[in-house]
Write a protein that binds this DNA or RNA. Structure first.
Lengths: 335, 335
DNA sequence: TTTAATTACGTAAACGTTTTCGGATAAAAT
DNA sequence: ATTTTATCCGAAAACGTTTACGTAATTAAA
């Protein structure tokens, strides 16, 4: 009984046409204030809410945006999502969240499932396992899309990133100021601009301070945590680095465990810092120096950007927004 | 041009009716294998995907489910969501995620926005700030809904929970076996069954071992982390507990910080354990003994349950599923 | 006073599906 | 030869909105 409250029902009870009701609900200029009030108050009384499917079908608007991230369990992404939601809520949009788990195929499959008008726009942070530039070159023409953090550089699309190069340069200098000379680099996201920028910032800082870059001090990320653990131990034994620059959060656990197992003291024997948004960084033993990205703000900016596109405003704005990360010095670098 | 590929277009190109096309796409028994193949292959060739709005409008099915949680940044919930997604993907459903940030009003507002047919069903873990039993009593009649972890006990609805009472009892016994006598309880989720069950398990274990329950050793959770920090310090100074049983993850950071500031050694001066799904628990200083809930499995079970409802199967199954948590002993309890 | 403009509302088509019902054909049963 | 049944397909309505267009009533301009 009470379930079937739709526009037709409102129209009948008020003795007006459904067109008038619809327009009144959408605050159209064509409708007098008096009838608007009549409609609105009855709608409220009957607890009317518009059917989204019908509305979407007719208007081609879904009031939903999609967020595609590798993993919501990652601190960075969960914060970014929070930033996105804040804006989405402001614009009355729902948020559809997809996790790719770094699987490029799943990423494409998810994205494709959104192209038939399921969402108004997409915010994406691409998977790190494959560089799928061609796919995205097509995609950005088909749907409003904003990249954040993990972007494709060459594309003509809106991109929100951070100052990976500069902050990595600065972090490396921090090591050097603490007296480190053999700074190892734990290399993640190698296929993405963010990864290479972090690496280049590290390398350039070494060179700028007259320290030779040594290929053998670079360790590539493996998805298998055990492998990373083993690799770090090997790195320690073979090359005795006095510092570890971890370019992604995932290296922290195996690095700390390796130090514990090899009885290396942090920061005495080796100093460590890492890109990270872990809230417990300050509780590690010892507390971890981090490069912390403004994750919430990135999500915030990305979402704002998308709604600019959806509302056709500021299309001539700069398509590249770069936010600043911050280096938080703690005990693991010890100075 | 290529954008407007819908059923009508397929029908025209194949010289058959749109009804036939629709039925073929839905693998109806009314359609011959031959025409099914013709339709399917053309659909694939033209990259046809059905318009979800139209489909939803007509069929009253959205192929989406909603997940309502307090916070995706919480390790427990992000894992649970992963478990949900696995099942949703299996059934070809999309997942809409909402964060309430423990705000009961926002929770109601979100939930209400889903009642007009935006989703086929809801998985929810209710906010801890208010006990909104009346609201949910109405709600479960209107929409397929499954509670997980944070439930309303009195309702006739599907609920996935864990053995909070038993595991808390066991954890308290672990303290006692380690020689603790003044075990403080950091009390969270007090308005929810999960919270009270944990508290009761703690209390009953004390009594079972002839230890007096002391009200002054119980500390209620505050949303303000600074307040928790201060309260824990006061607790330490006033009552010198030799153990801290944290019933929620959020107490860990202030507890560790308080110990550090007061120069209390863990587990020497005070032993600590906490409900937690933090992956870095083993890296804390010292590594933290945890009660870890099977978060992924909870999500998994909850989603399975919802799809049972949606497919009208197993409606006579037990509506209460209880999974087992596990006590992982580490250095912070020291024995 | 006539005409033009403005305001307020209604009619009906459209969005892309799904589904009910019925019909045509052919095979099987009588 | 007639009836029944099975198989395959189409016509058309329906889902609940939005919106282009038309029109009557009122007001402003001529």
């Amino acid at each position: 009984m009470a379930g079937e409250v739709n526009i037709k029902r409102l129209a009948q009870e008020l003795n007006i046409s459904i067109a008038t009701v619809s327009k009144a609900l959408n605050d159209s200029y064509e409708i007098s204030l008096k009838t608007k009030n009549r409609v609105l108050s009855l709608a409220k009384e009957l607890n009317y809410t518009p059917n989204p499917a019908a509305s979407n079908l007719r208007s081609n608007k879904t009031k939903t945006i999609a967020v595609i991230v590798p993993d919501v369990a990652n601190n960075f992404f969960s914060l970014a999502i929070k930033g996105i939601e804040e804006i989405a809520r402001k614009y009355g949009h729902h948020v559809l969240i997809y996790q790719t788990h770094e699987d490029a195929e799943m990423e494409k499959s998810f994205t494709n499932s959104l192209l038939n008008g399921r969402v108004d726009g997409i915010l994406t942070s691409v998977s790190s396992n494959e560089y799928n530039s061609d796919y995205y070159r097509d995609l950005v023409k088909k749907v409003p899309l904003v990249f954040f953090d993990r972007v494709y550089e060459s594309l003509d699309a809106f991109k929100i990133t951070t100052d990976d190069y500069q902050i990595s340069f600065k972090a490396t200098e921090h090591f050097i100021e603490c007296g480190c000379q053999n700074i190892a680099f734990l290399y993640g996201l190698g296929k993405l601009p963010a990864g290479t920028a972090r690496f280049t910032g590290y390398k350039d800082a070494l060179i700028a301070h007259g320290i030779n870059f040594r290929e053998e001090l670079v360790l590539d990320y493996s998805e298998d945590e055990e492998v990373n653990f083993a690799n770090i131990k090997t790195l320690f034994k073979k090359h005795k680095p006095d510092a570890l620059f971890s370019s992604i959060e995932e290296f922290i656990i195996p690095a700390y465990m390796a130090c514990a197992e090899l009885k290396f003291s942090i920061p005495g024997d080796v100093k460590i810092l890492s890109f990270s948004n872990m809230s417990s960084a300050k509780l590690l033993n010892p507390s971890l120096t981090t490069i912390t990205q403004p994750a919430f703000e990135i999500g915030n900016e990305a979402a704002k950007c998308l709604f600019k596109i959806l509302n056709k405003k500021g299309m001539d704005d700069d398509k590249d927004i770069v936010l600043k990360s911050v280096l938080i010095k703690r005990a693991s670098t010890g100075c």
